[in-house]
Design a binder for these strands. Structure first.
Lengths: 116, 116
DNA sequence: AAAGTATTTCAAATTTTTTTGAAGTAATTG
DNA sequence: CAATTACTTCAAAAAAATTTGAAATACTTT
């Protein structure tokens, strides 16, 4: 039993082919979850800053730590979130791990970190 | 005392005008916080779904409730998050409140809800 | 191989976000 | 004006995210 909704809205919905049709056109649950996860990762100022920095310059963890001025373990945690959302990736090189943006990370970098 | 970082990265930074210059080009703290807040609001599948739906069709709360199949109070909470991030707005009309996207909400709708 | 550096992992503590259900508000109808 | 509808607010409980500091790992240098 669908709720009683305002008439004009009901009509607009019918003009668009009905509620069912609108609902079917929405992104799938999986898609919504994937995007939510990425946005959740971007939902923190420090992580955004890291994304913006890596967009300009790939970096070892030690430099990021110095810039953010937080503990290694805290930073590792935030890097793992960005990594798990496929925004950054780390490559081991000798003693260091060098982080850089993934192609997906670059897309968000362009969109998020350049002025506007 | 800056950390010891890999030589090649050091050189890349110098080529770009030095670390200071790179850091100055990043978005300000305020900007980062503002964007983080928006992305945080988008970091939930239900809220994304609401955004996507409202992009197609403005709606009273009762219809959204029916679609999401959750309690009013839970829905109100999520709507308040979207509202506080300036993605949606509600207008009282008689007994109903009709929610729709703000201009900012529409930008995110275009970017987030259309296929890809 | 011992010692040092860079980084990650872990578990416990803390903080924040989300959920729940009851109560409240505001407009509408009988 | 009492009852109903549509919605929001509130405070407590529950769940999830973040922080902390110590320990572990993995190279590198000595």
């Amino acid at each position: 039993m669908a709720p009683v909704i305002p008439e004009d809205i009901q009509k607009e919905i019918e003009k668009k082919g009905g509620l069912r049709k609108i609902l079917n056109s929405l992104p799938s649950r999986k898609e919504l979850e994937r995007k939510a996860k990425i946005h959740s990762a971007l939902g923190d100022p420090l992580r955004l800053k890291i994304l913006c920095f890596l967009g300009i310059q790939s970096s070892c963890v030690c430099l990021l730590r110095d810039i953010a001025n937080i503990s290694y373990s805290k930073l590792s945690y935030h890097l793992s979130i960005l990594k798990n959302s496929n925004l950054i990736e780390g490559k081991k090189r000798g003693n260091y791990v060098i982080y850089s943006l993934t192609p997906q990370g670059m897309r968000y970098y362009e969109e998020l970190c350049k002025k506007e």
